[in-house]
Write a protein that binds this DNA or RNA. Structure first.
Lengths: 254, 254
DNA sequence: ATAAACCTTTGCGTAACGTTAATGTCAACA
DNA sequence: TGTTGACATTAACGTTACGCAAAGGTTTAT
């Protein structure tokens, strides 16, 4: 049984280019070459090609396949085990991806529902306008237009459920923070829990979280009198305490 | 807030090369270029980059991202839904891959256990030698060395459980075939079931199944007197009947 | 003044082929 | 015997999303 490139390609269900490429990179050389320069493949090559395709189907790179086939003492099982780990890791990543995409779709669908609910829409719009009036200019100057606008958009896009969840987190954060303040230890368990809740609350409004930004906001609570004033109304010294807790939480306390 | 390439890169957590590449392919152009040719990015570009990175994290290609961002009327949700389907398909493929790899590993482990079981080993070796003596030369001539050797290797690598399962399938196939033979209809339900069982039995010995090869084996049962003799002992005309059933089963009956 | 740390463009390299171009070969049919 | 169509060959560029290096200009700090 001898095959020319195309015959072998059809037999194996790959393109003739693939066959020639495998010759080119030296993992499947023809049994012989006839007088016209045609590649002629025999039974041994068919067998070899099937092995190559087997590994290829498993997602092993041709480079690795070459090594597998070159060395007789190659531990194929160990390689496969390693490869399986890679595949599992890939699937984990894929799962995260899928859930993110689904969340995004759901959020978008939520937004559609939301635009229908005009009352809630108006409410949030008013809330944004109020925010803009109060802190808009300064925040824009400090953090740039894009941060403010994104925050606003984020708020616009929030569904009622999300909004309520955010408020709940925030009040929980304040309760925890007040309890923590009594202990006077910003590195303590309660204070760190408050810092974590603060992070959670921030994540309702931020597209991406970073330690630096979190620490920055905490510092802002101290630097900006409006925020400080708000915190002072709850408890004098609370803004600084939260800042210290967050700076420890984020590891930015050096 | 203005950023140079490296500043923006650090902000976004990507390389400066990536930023320049995005300029090159036109999905993120700098706000302006200063007198020294430095790229300067403003708030709008930061925002745009974050959008790009968002889609990129979802595994969307830059080409598609470009289209998403170019057209205002682009239906982002529909695109994401489509993308989700692709991701799910990818995960299905990955799952198949993983289970195949795991099966392969298990089979290999089985082989290791098997080599320990010397009795069974010897038994199978004898079986292979017998097969070789009986049909080896002819089969090699007809189907090539690689097919025979692969079949032998397959048999060698079979665990006892697999071997018993294969024998069980074979006897079931014969029972069904004899029943079907009574009906005289190779296209009938019973005969087709026998053909399917025959395929299952073959798959214990073959690395890859193809209709052509299956039909070829069925034809061999008729052409080769040794096989015919075997079938005749069970029931005269059985080999031809099986061949007809298999040819119908594989769609090779034209 | 000088060095370090930036910035720029240009261009090659990656994996596994797909695609095109220009040309040669083979089997079959009129 | 000539022609046609299906094959074969090599060579070379294109693909993705950048990494890396070279060669040189700019900015900033000491």
């Amino acid at each position: 049984m001898e095959y020319t490139v195309q015959a072998l390609a059809r037999l194996a269900g790959v393109s003739s280019r693939t066959i020639r490429y495998y010759d080119e990179i030296g993992i499947l050389k023809p049994a012989r070459v006839n007088s016209s320069g045609y590649r002629i493949y025999g039974p041994a090559e068919v067998d070899r090609l099937q092995q190559i395709l087997f590994y290829r189907e498993l997602g092993v790179s041709l480079d690795v396949i070459r090594e597998i086939m070159l060395s007789d003492d190659y531990d194929g099982i160990a390689a496969l085990r390693e490869h399986r780990e890679k595949l599992l890791e890939k699937r984990r990543q894929l799962d995260v991806l899928i859930s993110t995409v689904e969340k995004t779709i759901k959020a978008s669908e939520g937004r559609i529902v939301m635009t229908d609910k005009e009352k809630f829409e108006g409410f949030k719009k008013k809330l944004i306008e109020e925010n803009e009036k109060k802190y808009g200019r300064e925040a824009r100057e400090k953090y740039g237009d894009e941060a403010v606008e994104k925050s606003n958009r984020k708020l616009m896009n929030m569904t009622q459920e999300q909004y309520e969840a955010a408020e709940k987190i925030q009040s929980e954060m304040f309760e925890t923070l007040k309890e923590a303040f009594k202990t006077g230890d910003p590195a303590g368990e309660l204070a760190q829990k408050a810092a974590d809740l603060h992070r959670q609350w921030l994540c309702f409004f931020w597209d991406s979280y970073s330690k630096e930004a979190h620490a920055g906001v905490a510092q802002m609570y101290v630097d900006d009198e409006r925020f400080t004033a708000y915190y002072v109304r709850v408890q004098p010294g609370l803004a600084k305490f939260l800042r210290d807790a967050v700076h420890i939480y984020t590891g930015m306390n050096k």
